Amino acid sequence: MIREYKTADLDKVMAIWLEGNEQAHRFIDPQFFKQNYELVKMLIPMSTLYVQDLEGVKGFIGITENYISGLFVDEAFRRQGTGKALVEKAKQRHNELLAHVYKKNTVAIDFFLSQDFNIVSESINEETGEPELLMRCNVEHKVKIGKCAL
């Protein structure tokens, strides 16, 4: 079940965030994420967060306006539709979604491409010095009238 974030979810969300960053970004010194842990912990509640709760938090998506500030799934629940379901939840709320993805994180790039995102531009992340891609998805919202979708 996808639901809104609760304050009680913070420790699990942060554990998934740290583990996910260390696994997906092996090209970045793990100390970078550990050094930013407390800052992210403070900023998390400022975003709109949705969590996948399957007898505990298994993944989350953080959204600031229409920007996906984080999408992380517990390793044991990856490739089971959790990430897709979280992105779908975000698509229900926004006409456009943006996300930055490190160029070396080909798994994430392929995932976002599979969710109808396109690569818009490339830049260098100022904090890590790593190339990253800006990806965008324009969401079509269909109005349902009876059995028809407009």
Rank of each mutant, 00 (worst) to 15 (best):
M1H: 13
I2G: 04
R3Q: 05
R3S: 06
T7N: 14
D9K: 03
D11R: 06
K12P: 06
M14C: 01
I16G: 01
W17V: 01
W17E: 01
E19P: 05
G20S: 12
G20A: 11
E22T: 08
E22P: 04
Q23T: 12
A24S: 13
R26E: 13
D29A: 05
Q31H: 11
Q31G: 13
Q31F: 09
Q35W: 02
N36S: 13
Y37A: 08
E38K: 02
V40N: 14
P45S: 10
M46A: 11
M46D: 13
S47Q: 14
L49P: 05
Y50G: 11
L54K: 15
F60A: 07
I61H: 06
I63C: 09
T64N: 15
E65V: 15
N66P: 03
G70C: 08
G70K: 07
F72T: 05
D74E: 14
F77E: 08
Q80M: 15
G81V: 04
G81R: 01
L86P: 02
L86Q: 02
L86W: 04
K89W: 11
K91F: 00
R93L: 15
H94W: 09
N95C: 14
L98D: 12
A99N: 13
A99F: 00
V101Y: 10
Y102L: 01
K103Q: 15
K104G: 13
V107P: 06
A108R: 04
F111K: 00
S114F: 00
S114K: 00
Q115N: 03
S121W: 02
S123D: 12
I124Q: 09
N125Q: 06
N125W: 06
E126L: 12
E126K: 14
E130G: 05
E132L: 09
L133T: 01
N138P: 05
N138S: 14
V139Q: 01
H141V: 07
K144G: 08
I145W: 09
I145E: 07
K147L: 11
A149W: 15
